[in-house]
């Protein structure tokens, strides 16, 4: 049976926060609904109210502020994929957003929803991780800022408390000279949840040595993280295939260390190595 609830659409952020202050424990927040509608359809969604924040202008900016890129939580994947600012300073995120679901889903789904849902397969999370993203959370009583890696505690679990709302994310912009790559594996070419995904940023200095390398892999660890063991292998080295494979093996090792050997490991181990290799090759060996 479908879930039953009352639907509210506040007209301002303060109204939304006041509502949450009162009803936070009984409320599910909807920003695009691409996950919530599934649980409402199956009846798994159990709440008294659904608060729709998707049309709050305060949650919809995309702008540079104090040297950081601020993206409102109700900005859709389609907007992130197309926006000149995201494409300029966070192209790996724009690319990832363009791979989410389908046109219809990208038109509805939002970055805030993607983060709050905290699926291990979320396409925007690895790019946000390589941008050292921080999540800005507001409530009627104040504001806090958390790194994404701390904000998500496990599959579908965050530290968002009743009464709180993600208002925006803050990203370090990609500096000039950096290269970027987003890669994903899925069971088909559209409308498919990522089997795993990788975001990478890399900078090579004048001597052809990797100066900075940031790598995050989705669906292989219970919480979003940067693959520092692999980053360390790459940094201060010249990009070459041997090093790429070495880094890729570090990632799969890390995956097994976190999650243990599971029935899916037979696939996921070579696949994550392959995908990391693909991202690194794309980063450093492809033209443009």
């Amino acid at each position: 049976m479908r879930s039953r609830f009352r639907y509210y659409r506040p007209t301002s952020l303060s109204e939304a926060l006041d509502f949450l202050a009162l009803h936070g424990t009984d409320t599910a927040i909807v920003a695009g609904g691409t996950d919530l509608m599934i649980s409402a359809r199956s009846g798994d969604l159990q709440c008294k109210y659904v608060l729709d924040v998707s049309r709050l202008n305060e949650l919809r900016p995309v702008a540079m502020s104090d040297g950081l890129l601020a993206i409102g939580s109700a900005v859709t994947h389609a907007e992130i994929a197309a926006h000149p600012v995201t494409r300029d300073v966070a192209p790996v995120l724009a690319k990832a957003a363009s791979c989410v679901g389908s046109t219809q889903i990208r038109n509805m789904g939002t970055i805030g929803g993607n983060i709050a849902n905290a699926s291990p397969a979320a396409d925007t999370i690895p790019p946000l991780m390589v941008h050292n993203a921080k999540i800005v959370v507001k409530s009627a009583s104040g504001e806090r800022v958390e790194y994404l890696g701390d904000f998500v505690r496990g599959p579908y679990v965050t530290i968002l408390k009743p009464g709180e709302l993600i208002t925006h994310v803050l990203l370090e912009p990609m500096m000039s000279g950096y290269r970027h790559s987003f890669q994903r594996i899925a069971r088909r070419r559209a409308l498919s949840i990522a089997r795993m995904n990788v975001a990478a940023l890399g900078l090579v200095d004048g001597n052809g040595v990797i100066q900075d390398l940031r790598l995050s892999v989705g669906s292989v660890t219970p919480r979003p993280c940067r693959m520092t063991v692999a980053e360390d292998v790459l940094t201060s080295n010249k990009p070459d295939k041997k090093v790429f494979w070495e880094a890729a093996e570090k990632v799969s090792h890390e995956m097994v260390r976190w999650s243990g050997i599971r029935p899916t490991t037979e696939y996921k181990k070579p696949a994550v190595e392959g995908l990391v290799y693909r991202a690194l090759a794309d980063l450093f060996l492809s033209e443009g």
């Binding site: 594996i185 494979w245 037979e266 696939y267 070579p270 696949a271 392959g274």
Partner: peptide, 17 residues
């Protein structure tokens, strides 16, 4: 599926690697 194809292709992949 992904799993079966990757498994079948592991030796050509290793050779190319």
């Amino acid at each position: 599926n992904l799993e079966r194809v990757l498994k079948a292709g592991i030796s050509v992949r290793s050779a190319e690697k």
